[in-house]
Design a protein around this nucleic acid. Structure first.
Length: 426
RNA sequence: GCGUCGGUGACGGAGUGGUCAAUCGUACCAGACUGUAAAUCUGGCGCCCAUUGGGCUACGCAGGUUCGAAUCCUGCCCGACGCA
């Protein structure tokens, strides 16, 4: 039952036809955050998710995610703007890449410039001149990337790791540079050694000041190579934090709970059911995603059936081109990924004929656009030789042009997937 | 013309008798990158074979000293600066 309805029953007995008690209503609404977690459902939040079509061929669906800053047609890529910028790009340029929504980061924005600065500016959107939808990640990924990820030099998906059995992370293990406790995580910045404590309450407080439309619960993103025991223990922590996040939130921002459970079927199912039961506005699917794309698929297959189908599901940190169709077919509505922006700054463009590395000298003699079929501004107005020159000369404009193209290309790619769902072929 | 200092791999620049095919940086070549410690990181970079390894040619040029020279000596060539 929706919160507003509950309040309505209390204040307007007789299905709304009875006498009204506006003062009581106002009072209850004021203390809405004191309601038990289970009663405080997502309808408080200022997002609305409408599914416009369910695929008959897969779990894929089309939807519209309404936020106070506009609508997002789903499935959608969420480009990453960690420090309140899509690196190398102006926000008005990003808007021309078919980007609908961005995600920024709690941990990094807290360290610089600090959430107060952002709040003073009127929130993230005003701060960075992006008057469109936004999310903030909770800092949970940094528990991994600055923790075991840093220690072992591995990413979310384990590709190859020599001696991986000896390096398995056992229950009770701690990363070298941070400490994970029941209350939260004590970080030490690898940049300047600065300490930062982030737990569910801290993360939510920061995200409320940052003011994105959608915020995420603080979780422990588990590394690959964890034992079942470690993952299980970590899961109780993440679940505990999830409840605390719901309790801590006072704003009307939508809060997404994050499903963990590593690559273990029982834990993923348990986590999905539990997170689903708490009354979040939507879901994030996080953590390590196995050692192959097949495994990622399994993980999604275990998870999705346990999540309320009416609520949006965001897959955290996945989005190579070849990943998109499979994850969308599993029922993912939004997903963020650093790949398009990250690769661009390394000189790599994505095209209909594969990756193109602009560091290669041969492109200096190439007068063609990045991708003849791409309709982005860069492909219409610039040629490969110039971009190769910029990249090789280490000119920031090279990274900027490639970022523009990659974002446009990735967004167009998702757009085509949406069309496929629309036409019933996916 | 005299004097001083100097000439090292594509470039900048260490090394000043053996452990030197020569530290390091740049450039170049290759590879990696999935909720961004990321305009980053890793590897290669005289030539020829090779799996560890081996052979050859090299520190301006030509000689010399020495068991051994990029390193010491002599001459020459070139450069910078100073004095005429």
């Amino acid at each position: 039952m929706h919160t507003e309805n509950i309040i309505s029953c209390i204040c307007r007995p007789g299905g709304g036809r009875g006498p009204r008690f506006p003062k009581l209503e106002k009072e209850i609404l004021k203390h809405r955050s004191c309601l038990p977690v289970g009663l405080r459902r997502g309808d408080d939040a200022m997002i609305q998710f409408t599914i416009t079509k369910n695929s008959k061929k897969s779990r894929a669906r089309l939807g519209v995610l309404k936020t106070p800053h506009g609508e997002v047609l789903t499935p959608s890529l969420v480009p990453v703007a960690t420090l309140a910028t899509v690196k190398s790009m102006r926000s008005d340029e990003v808007a021309k890449t078919k980007t609908q929504i961005l995600i920024s980061n709690t941990y990094h924005l807290h360290l610089a410039p600090g959430e107060k600065v952002v709040k003073n500016a009127g929130g993230l959107q005003k701060f960075m001149n992006w008057p469109h939808p936004m999310m903030t990640d909770s800092g949970g990924f940094q528990v991994f990337s600055l923790g075991f990820g840093r220690d072992l030099g591995v990413g979310k998906i384990l590709k190859f790791f020599p001696g991986k059995i000896d390096r398995a992370i056992e229950k009770g293990a701690q990363p070298k540079f941070l400490k994970i406790t029941r209350e939260g995580v004590r970080f030490r910045s690898p940049l300047d050694g600065k300490e930062l404590f982030l737990g569910p309450k801290e993360s939510i407080a920061i995200q409320e000041k940052l003011g994105a439309d959608i915020i995420f619960a603080f979780d422990e993103c588990t590394p690959p190579l964890v034992t079942h025991e470690y993952a299980k223990k970590s899961l109780t922590l993440t679940h505990d934090w999830a409840k605390q996040c719901l309790e801590a939130k006072k704003s009307k921002q939508a809060l997404f709970g994050i499903v963990q459970g590593s690559h273990f079927e029982d834990l993923r199912k348990e986590s999905a059911s539990f997170i689903n039961s708490l009354g979040f506005d939507g879901f994030g699917i996080g953590g390590d995603l196995g050692d192959s794309k097949v495994m990622t698929q399994h993980i999604l297959d275990w998870t999705m059936p346990h999540l309320d189908p009416k609520k949006p599901r965001h897959l955290l940190g996945i989005g190579h081109l070849e990943d998109m169709e499979p994850i969308i077919k599993c029922g993912v509505d939004t997903f963020d990924c650093t790949v398009p922006t990250h690769y661009a700054r390394r000189g790599v463009a994505f095209t209909n004929r594969g990756k193109l590395d602009f560091r290669k000298a041969q492109l200096l003699k190439d007068r063609k656009p990045i991708d003849a079929e791409c309709e982005c501004l860069v492909c219409r107005e610039y040629q490969r030789d110039y971009i190769a020159h910029l990249v090789r000369a280490n000119e920031i404009t090279g990274g900027a042009l490639l970022t523009f193209h990659n974002l446009f290309f990735f967004n167009t790619y998702v757009e085509k997937i949406r069309e496929k769902i629309e036409r019933g072929i996916l």
